[in-house]
Design a protein around this nucleic acid. Structure first.
Length: 1120
RNA sequence: GCGGGUAUAGCUCAGUUGGCUAGAGCGCAGCUCUGAUAAAGCUGAGGUCCUUGGUUCGAAUCCAAGUACCCGCACCA
């Protein structure tokens, strides 16, 4: 079976990949792989669900490459796998996109989609969400297939099935939702589910409260107008508290003012009024650090101290001090006491104590609005103060707030109105722009505000149980210390807010008796059916989503009252967190579940996940079974652009997956210039991801990609092409009997030995989830060892015309190496390796490389000694080339001799003896001599003064110092320098000190030789070029020029020629005459023409060899 | 503020349990090679392995402190 010719110019890798996809489909490669491993031992991978809300980007491909690579590796080792991909379906992110599509602006719009019919509206909206998920799940499926990700993907007819019956798992499936119900039931049985009334972070656009996890995502540095306002004290005429706030709208709901009892407060007299404020706050350089570090909002001036505020407003006088503790209980007039809603609070304004009040920001007196802040709420509760809740779910002032009613809290104009109003009342002391990090909705970027709401929580007081489970999991990569991060989160996290006042999501199975406040958690569909007293018929047949599930009512066994489901949907991390149970059908077949649980491996991008998915699966699994859901977790960092900036569609620096894989893409550089780039193909992306350190962000883009293509993909491809293109000419038969190792060359046995090392590295790397270690080693193997040494040194063995054992050995060796490499790399670059394999395989080998076994180490081929010796040889070659380079003699010019002084190591000497021929050829010398140390040194040190350093030290005495150095024993000085010792010299009776840097040591060889030293090894080259050597050098030049002309003449590699060489130069003629046979052999000349050739088919050129003109005329001898 | 991590060439990064003269790629400079050929290779310059102290025969590696950056948590008026 002949090999296909391999194109090595302009290879279209994406096209080859598409051909491989077609091949896989045609031969049903994936199905055959599953069948082959059907009864194998299990390897359980659990996919973290990808949000099916948009097309996948290149950043998703990192994790998916890992997922695929490890699965393929284990499959090649005969393991049985689940191959189940997951889609995350429910939640606000989908809702927001659907809102955009439908051009809806608020929750109100959603409920009015079908005018006047909230039920139908919600039903429609929920269906739209579901359809969006289906749409993008399909898109992502296609993209993943193109990436080469082998999963049990849904195909045509599968998409018509309910979500729960498809091949991939969908978190919107009934199985998933009801599994969460059983989790919540377990929590409830332990009394952990509770209803909380609290000031919660709230997004006024989405009309939804945010959990602690979500809060963390959305902090942004923004500047707000902060105000200093005075609260006149009651019963202390002319005296005021000075308070400060960055959210003026909350003043409308002021109830109290807090001071730190421990702090000292100043009485500042200003314009006949007394102002109280903390002593430390008066002169504090506010945000000094941030200003210095440039953590600032552009255009915002530097903050001034409070003292400066007073100065600039007409001066001040400090007239006394008072302890914070002594201020407790004072009463004051609030800024908006005239509002009806503030009536109750107005009567009770007083100064309260709060130990957390500081004096580095603000005034040391904190305005407390229990309806507008978490701390405020808890303080108010503790102090028995009323709460004023000013905002509705859209962040708009409710009735009772006078002119504020109907205004949105975060509107600029609302703040304007408030400031003006305070000004009119004469209580506004100062306004400033204040930059600070403020929470925003992570989804829609709207500024959050705090609102008093009722939400549902899981009490996380059982966090220690989760921690014990976490202890059993291996977190990788080690350097990011994932376990510590997870434990840290578990220590600090608050209770889990599981409710969302939205539409598309898990229906929280909480039914409430509104009259008594009793509530129940339903744990399954069956339980609900049993308990249902109303609405079941209408609900039956629907998925447990709004609005249908809301129709079902149950009865409170205590009171007989009807109980209704709370309208809230669930936090989406519940959806993703239950998948170790739901996707393995925990509630359906516990035995089967046990076979796959816990997962051997999960991998996701780590930023955020320690409080999201990792947290959710760990917490939920602890509650369900008190067991870790996975054994090993591999996290990876983020994909950035090639300039290390975050990728953003809007910045023009994100790369769509299709662009990277097939279509090419545009990219805007930091200067704003847009460039168009060709596609990379999936394998190149996969290799980029696999070779990268998962702990570090990856800078993805055309430049790093090109670099890798050049140094790895193309190198491998060129070697493969080299092999095939010669093997087909020679009709090499891979199934012919193998040449015994004893008859193979050292070079053959060396590359095979090092190949075993690479196999070992590969296996260790895959087992330890450290692909980088393997890929970097693989690059070195392909580049340095295979391409740059083995193939280069072996080329002539392939070219020669006779078909002897040596040629067969070379073919067999390279064939083995290529086949093995293809299998080693197959899990990482499945397309390229399949292409190579398909061309190399024989009929008796499996149809696809992915049906092959992963290579194992053959200890019989390992020869550590040979590897060491070869390494030394490589360093000698490098030394020799370096010597030639320094002596300015090009490699083409042959030289008479090289002498090598090896180190004390006997292996090094052995290497010189063993590989003398290699050294001779590679360095183009006639003779290699191993120098015996007993014959004396090859090189002697020569020490020169370093006048640059000596000049400043010795000034006018420099000349004397220089001659003293010249007079000293060079070997002694050199030894001192080598030992980094100070040298002492006597100069006119004085002793002078010379530092190592004052002396420049070089190693000199005897006349006519040029030497170089590296560690213990020394190499000297005979640089004397005799007439004969010069002639030979010229002959080699002639060969090269003729070859060049062959190429110019468009001759084929194997074409024979008739050649005429004409020159006026006597030297050149002599060279030609004495090397005629050599030139003929190298250039495939079968006939020498004594005179100028004639005819159209003659290719003519005049070139220069050694400065002399040479006429080259040649023609293909076929045309004769 | 609390906790964790990192700091190696101009840039991006490797560097296994402490062990030769600390490496690669890109970039830069100078070359070479030419039947893998619109490919490839070599050589060179460039290092306070963040700083200081400690442990050790020996530290880029281990320990402590400091500095800078990154991440996580808490983020407040």
């Amino acid at each position: 079976m002949p090999f296909e010719k391999v194109e090595t110019q302009q290879v279209d890798f994406p096209a080859l990949e598409r051909a491989v996809l077609a091949l896989w489909q045609r031969i049903e490669a994936f199905e055959k792989l599953r069948e082959k491993n059907r009864t194998g031992p299990r390897w359980s991978f659990l996919d973290g669900p990808i949000t099916a809300n948009n097309p996948m980007g290149v950043h998703h491909a990192w994790g998916r490459t890992y997922k695929d690579a490890f699965q393929r590796y284990h499959a090649m080792n005969g393991k049985q796998l689940r191959y189940q991909n997951g889609f995350d379906c429910q939640g606000l992110w989908v809702e927001v996109e659907v809102e955009k599509e439908l051009k809806l602006k608020s929750k109100r719009d959603i409920e009015n989609l079908v005018p006047g019919d909230a039920f139908a509206s919600i039903d429609h909206f929920v269906q739209q969400c579901q359809q969006r998920v289906d749409k993008f799940a399909r898109v992502q499926t296609e993209q993943s297939i193109r990436l080469g990700y082998w999963m049990d993907w849904d195909r045509g007819e599968d998409w018509a099935k309910p979500a729960g019956e498809r091949r991939s798992y969908f978190t919107m499936s009934e199985e998933n939702n009801y599994s969460i119900w059983s989790f919540l039931k377990k929590c409830h049985n332990r009394g952990l589910v509770y209803r909380g009334y609290d000031a919660m972070p709230w997004c006024p656009r989405c009309s939804v409260g945010l959990s602690q996890m979500e809060m963390a995502e959305g902090y942004q540095l923004v500047a707000h107008r902060a105000v200093f306002v005075r609260f006149p004290l009651r019963g202390r005429v002319g005296e005021n508290l000075l308070v400060w706030t960055t959210t003026p709208w909350t003043l409308s709901s002021n109830v109290a003012a807090a001071v730190n009892p421990e702090l000292t407060y100043l009485k500042v007299l200003h314009k006949e009024q007394i102002f109280y404020l903390a002593k430390g706050a008066f002169t504090a350089q506010r945000l000094e650090e941030q200003w210095k570090k440039k953590e600032w909002v552009e255009g915002v001036p530097k903050l001034t101290t409070l003292e400066q505020h007073f100065k600039s407003k007409g001066g001040y006088e400090i007239v006394g001090e008072v302890k914070g503790a002594d201020m407790i209980g004072w009463t004051y007039d609030g800024p908006f006491d005239e509002l009806p809603a503030a009536r109750e609070a107005a009567a009770r304004h007083r100064v309260i104590a709060w130990k957390d009040v500081g004096e580095t920001e603000g005034t040391g007196i904190v305005h407390i609005a229990p309806g507008c802040g978490k701390e405020d709420f808890h303080l108010g509760k503790a102090e028995g103060l009323p709460s004023v809740a000013p905002l509705d779910e859209y962040g708009v002032f409710q009735p009772g707030f006078g002119e504020l009613t109907g205004k949105a809290a975060v509107d600029h104009s609302t703040t304007d109105w408030i400031l003006e109003n305070l000004q009119q009342k004469g209580v506004l002391f100062a306004v400033e722009k204040y930059p600070h990090s403020y929470p925003h909705c992570w989804r829609c970027k709207t500024e959050l505000l705090f609102r008093l709401v009722e939400e549902w929580f899981i009490d996380m007081k059982w966090r220690d149980e989760i921690k014990r489970v976490v202890e059993q999991v291996t977190f990788l990569p080690e350097s990011i210390n994932g376990k510590a991060r997870e434990l840290d989160w578990l220590t600090n996290m608050g209770d889990w807010m599981i409710s969302k006042k939205r539409f598309w999501g898990l229906a929280l199975p909480i039914w409430v008796d509104e009259q008594t406040g009793d509530f129940e958690v339903i744990g399954s569909l069956e339980e609900l059916k049993e308990r249902a007293v109303e609405g079941w018929e209408k609900f039956e047949g629907h998925t447990p989503h709004r609005p249908w599930i809301d129709l079902v009512k149950i009865k409170n066994p205590k009171t007989g009252n009807k109980m209704s489901r709370i309208p809230d949907v669930g936090n989406p991390w519940l959806d993703a967190g239950i998948v170790p149970y739901s996707t393995m059908f925990y509630n359906r077949d516990r035995t089967d579940w046990e076979k796959w649980f816990p997962a051997d491996f999960i991998t996701e991008s780590f930023p955020g996940q320690f409080r999201n998915w990792f947290y959710a699966i760990l917490a939920m699994s602890t509650m369900m079974e008190n067991r870790p859901p996975m054994k090993t977790l591999l996290g990876h960092a983020l994909v950035r652009d090639q300039w290390d900036r975050p990728m953003h569609k809007s910045a023009g620096n994100s790369i769509p997956f299709e662009g990277a894989a097939d279509e090419g893409y545009d990219l805007k550089d930091p200067k704003g210039k847009v460039g168009h780039y060709p596609p990379l193909g999936a394998d190149l992306c996969r290799w980029m991801y696999s070779r990268h350190n998962p702990a570090n962000n990856l800078d993805f883009g055309p430049e790093p990609a090109e670099e890798l293509r050049g140094k790895f993909i193309l190198k491998l491809w060129n070697v493969y092409g080299f092999f095939c293109n010669y093997a087909r000419l020679d009709s090499f038969d891979p199934s012919a009997p193998s040449v015994p190792m004893s008859e193979r060359t050292d070079l053959d046995r060396w590359i095979l030995s090092d190949l075993q090392g690479l196999i070992r590295t590969a296996r260790t790397a895959f087992e330890n989830y450290n692909l980088m270690a393997f890929c970097l080693e693989a690059e070195r193997f392909v580049d340095d060892k295979l391409s740059n040494w083995y193939v280069r040194r072996s080329r002539r063995r392939f070219w020669k015309s006779e078909h002897g054992t040596d040629k067969q050995a070379a073919y067999q060796t390279l064939y083995t190496v290529l086949m093995t490499l293809a299998k080693l790399f197959a899990p990482i670059v499945p397309f390229l390796t399949e292409t190579i394999y398909q061309n190399l395989r024989t009929a008796d080998q499996p149809e696809s490389i992915h049906l092959c076994d992963y290579p194992t180490v053959d200890e019989a081929l390992v020869d550590a000694e040979l590897s060491d010796e070869m390494n030394f040889l490589l360093s000698l070659v490098s030394l020799g080339l370096s010597a030639r380079n320094s002596a300015k003699i090009k490699v083409r010019q042959p030289l008479a001799e090289i002498k090598v002084l090896a180190g004390a190591d006997s292996e090094e000497r052995a290497a010189v003896e063993r590989f003398g021929d290699q050294l001779r050829e590679e360095l183009n010398v006639k003779k290699v001599t191993l120098h015996d140390p007993e014959w004396g040194p090859l090189l002697t040190p020569e020490v020169k003064p370093n006048v640059k350093t000596l000049g400043p030290k010795f000034g006018s005495r420099l000349k004397q110092v220089v001659s003293a150095i010249a007079g000293a024993d060079a070997a002694y000085l050199a030894a001192k320098v080598r030992a980094s010792d100070t040298t002492e010299l006597t100069l006119d009776g004085d002793s002078i000190q010379l530092e190592p840097a004052d002396l420049v040591v070089s190693m000199k060889a005897e006349e006519g030789w040029f030497g170089i030293v590296s560690g213990d090894a020394q190499v000297v080259l005979d640089t004397r070029i005799t007439e004969e050597l010069a002639r030979e050098g010229m002959a080699r030049d002639v060969v090269r020029q003729v070859q060049e002309q062959r190429k110019e003449a468009n001759l084929q590699m194997e074409d024979r020629i008739t050649l005429f060489l004409g020159t006026e130069s006597e030297k050149l003629r002599l060279s030609l005459d004495s090397h005629r046979d050599y030139i003929a052999a190298e250039t495939l000349t079968v006939e020498w023409s004594p005179q100028s050739l004639t005819g159209d088919a003659v290719h003519r050129a005049t070139v220069k060899v050694d400065g002399q003109a040479l006429n080259i005329e040649l023609k293909s001898s076929r045309l004769k």
